[in-house]
Nucleic acid binder design. Structure first.
Length: 747
DNA sequence: CGTAGTTTTGTTTTT
DNA sequence: CAAAACTACG
């Protein structure tokens, strides 16, 4: 096939090397996805059964894309290839075989929220003071144990002080609670799969036969458990191909161990090693900057990325007085490039170190009427109303899921309060039965006599739903839950901004169920309740980003891994924010600093055409004004590669006043919100603004807005260079906006 | 039992 | 500054 000729020499080598262990050291933007897809295509073409191929990607989105690209090359056959994330692959395996290690195949998957609920319960049972042992810390401890495949016994044995024994006890009890609830957490998905394989060689053998060819992407971010899993699976045929870049290892906080990639050659002495060092993505300047930054790290495989691309623009660096001005600049700049240079919104990404930094950009973008998508932060599925409804579905699906049953027992209010719940819980514990079973026999519990009728009707209600679940589709079932609980009705009555947003989320959930059903139908599979819940548990926010929609992406540097954009803004380039953490514990030998630097490297190498770094002298952090120095990473870029533009712009007097002394965050916010967002400090070509007569709408007209939907124009006022239009939106109420930005369409 | 009002706590990063 | 966790009251 001629398409292989478009690959460079090492890329071709990687594609053609299908037998035996292979390590591909793929620098940023070196076309590794192309290599992986072509490699799968080549294998299929050369007669390998696609059924025998397993490809592990980092996100579901990457998995989908890979499958599509393979399809494009080979046409048919790719649907038989298993392309999925570690977690999805493990769920599929466990659904089939987890009964071998004493779990029910109908297990629930607990997210961070659920885990916390369990941990709290565990601490209460063990009389552990959560002031001394923070739930969050315990959770991360347990997570790390599991990353290392340590059982409660292991932890117990190696504990050498009181604290560690305590933690081991929590771990033990936590596991026993999960088992009782027939639930697994994220880390269990991997660990239990390993356990299954180790305890049941015949099951392992089955999968070894099945997956004769294995590929793992982003190998630098695998942890010990994942390493073990991959080793087991590939143990028989040894056709293991791993792809990664040690310079992009940014997940050590969740147990990722760079040694997996650094020591691959030691584990597999006969491994072929191929380096991909030609970069096809970025300009020379961007690459040069990235190379110089990462060169400050000591623990790395030396490599030299190069490109034939043009030199391009310098790295732009801009410092501002405040975070507000920073955001204003970034948004103004994007708006400018969009209008003047005709760049699509999808060409831009605004990146930051922590999710909390996104808000200010959201505000400015909203004001400017620029469409954006926020990736990460509070997950859609962790919103209260969504979790409530899902808890119903989970209760229907898995009767032993106590966390879900308890969540919905009194939602909507049924007059079954905390005391009653605690008593039932106690009884269930004593009798060693599930919470729901305790509810069913509530008449045996003398302490809850008063609520007995309420409990009975709850039990009947759930049982009825469970019966319905057998005949209804998932969507119909969800609709039934929404109707019969009166959940939506209650929110409608409330009729506040918040309740409206919640109703919208519920609508979105219904849409998601529908999408799932359609998808399953398309693939000729059965849409099941468990299947939907599983999908819900394992989607990352980034998976919902689609290439078609034209919006700016806002996300953390972590989420940006694997993506590329013509224009990248890395914001908050301040010491203490990025690199974050405690400066006292930061030295060059410190691994955490090196990881931050790799994060910077990832950020820079996302850029294709240009990268802008921004920072602010002072910014609001946790409600107080903080002063920061410019990030050390900015200084690590050679001076001649950086365009400094101007530093702090001349400020207007009224703004000066705003920034002084006693001004609170909200005052500043109010002041900025009431201002036209665009008061550009930098001279720029005048933006053509329509005058009132040129506006295609006038007072009384119905218009459509990208974000707010349909509304009626109630006022048009002259305001500086632009016109201020007041619109009463059907769903969002009255909003004021500037005609130049809002792009209102008369309908 | 439910609510409103008060206090405390928190920032990495995510499947 | 917010969200979460507590507390006290009707």
């Amino acid at each position: 096939m001629s398409s292989y000729e478009t690959l460079n020499t090492p890329q071709q080598e990687a594609v053609l090397h299908t037998e035996g262990p292979l390590l591909i050291l793929a620098g940023a933007g070196s076309g590794k996805t192309r290599v992986l897809t072509h490699r799968i295509a080549w294998m299929i073409e050369s007669g390998i059964n696609p059924y025998n191929i397993l490809a592990i990607t980092f996100t579901n989105k990457a998995a989908d894309e890979m499958r599509q690209r393979v399809d494009r090359i080979v046409g048919m056959g790719s649907e038989a290839v298993w392309v999925s994330t570690f977690h999805s692959a493990c769920v599929r395996i466990l659904r089939r075989h987890i009964d071998y290690i004493g779990y029910d195949n109908h297990f629930a998957i607990y997210d961070t929220d659920d885990q916390k609920t369990v941990i709290k319960e565990v601490c209460r049972r063990l009389y552990i003071d959560t002031k001394l042992f923070k739930e969050k810390a315990l959770m991360s401890d347990i997570s790390h144990f599991k990353d290392q495949l340590l059982t409660p016994d292991d932890v117990e044995t190696s504990a050498f002080d009181h604290n560690e024994r305590k933690i081991a006890a929590v771990y033990r009890e936590y596991q026993s609670q999960l088992r009782k609830n027939n639930a697994l957490d994220f880390d269990d998905l991997i660990m239990k799969t390993v356990e299954l394989f180790e305890k049941h060689p015949q099951v392992l053998d089955y999968y070894q036969e099945r997956f004769r060819y294995i590929m793992v992407d982003e190998y630098q971010d695998t942890n010990f458990a994942q390493f073990r899993l991959v080793s087991l699976l590939s143990g028989k045929y040894r056709n293991l191909c791993v792809v990664g870049d040690d310079d992009q290892s940014i997940y050590s906080f969740r147990g990722a161990d760079v040694r997996n990639i650094l020591e691959f050659e030691n584990v597999f002495p006969d491994a072929r090693v191929i380096r991909l060092e030609q970069n096809y993505r970025s300009t020379k300047n961007i690459l040069e900057a990235a190379n110089n930054v990462i060169a400050n790290n000591t623990e790395r495989k030396e490599k030299r990325l190069w490109t034939e691309n043009e030199e391009g623009e310098k790295i732009h660096f801009r410092q501002f007085a405040t975070g507000f001005e920073e955001a204003e600049y970034v948004v103004g700049e994007i708006d400018h490039l969009h209008r003047a240079a005709g760049r699509d919104y999808r060409d831009f990404a605004i990146l930051y170190r922590t999710n909390a930094q996104s808000r200010i950009f959201e505000e400015k973008l909203l004001m400017a009427g620029i469409p954006y998508k926020l990736v990460g932060g509070i997950n859609f599925y962790s919103r209260k109303e969504i979790k409530d409804l899902l808890a119903y579905l989970r209760t229907i699906d898995n009767a032993r899921d106590d966390v879900s049953v308890r969540r919905i027992l009194n939602v909507p209010r049924r007059g079954i309060g905390d005391t009653t719940q605690a008593r039932i819980q106690e009884y269930a514990g004593e009798m060693d039965m599930s919470f729901f079973d305790a509810l069913r026999v509530a008449e045996e519990i003398p302490a809850v006599k008063r609520s007995l009728s309420k409990i009975d009707s709850f039990v009947t209600f759930i049982m009825a739903l469970r019966t319905k679940a057998e005949i209804l589709t998932v969507r119909e079932l969800l609709q039934d839950v929404i109707d019969s609980t009166g959940y939506a009705l209650e929110l409608e009555k409330e009729n506040t901004e918040e309740s409206k947003a919640r109703l919208e989320n519920i609508d979105e959930l219904i849409t998601k169920v529908q999408v799932y059903q359609d998808q399953m139908k398309e693939q000729g599979q059965k849409a099941t309740l468990s299947g939907f819940l599983e999908e819900v548990a394992l989607v990352a926010d980034i998976d919902t980003v689609d290439a078609e929609s034209d919006y700016i992406l806002l996300m953390t540097l972590h989420s940006a891994k694997g993506l590329e954009f013509p224009h990248v803004f890395i914001t908050g380039m301040e010491d203490g924010i990025f690199p974050g953490g405690n400066p006292l514990f930061r030295s060059d030998e410190d691994n955490s600093l090196q990881e931050e630097r790799r994060l910077m490297y990832v950020g820079l190498t996302r850029g294709m055409k240009n990268v802008t770094l921004t920072c602010a002298r002072q910014r609001m952090l946790r409600g107080e004004v903080k002063f920061h120095n410019v990030s050390m990473f900015v200084r690590e870029i050679p001076r001649e590669l950086v365009d400094l533009g101007y530093t702090v712009q001349e400020k207007k007097p009224d703004r000066d006043k705003l920034l002084q002394g006693d001004n609170t965050y909200s005052k500043m916010k109010a002041a900025f919100l009431s201002k036209p967002f665009m008061q550009q400090e930098q001279p720029r070509p005048a933006v053509p603004v329509k005058n009132a007569s040129a506006l295609e709408y006038s007072v009384g007209d119905t218009v459509r807005h990208v974000k707010f939907g349909v509304g009626i124009v109630t006022e048009i006022r002259e305001g500086g260079r632009d016109y201020e239009v007041t619109v009463n939106f059907d769903r969002f109420g009255v909003k004021k906006m500037f005609a130049g930005f809002a792009k209102l369409k008369k309908i």
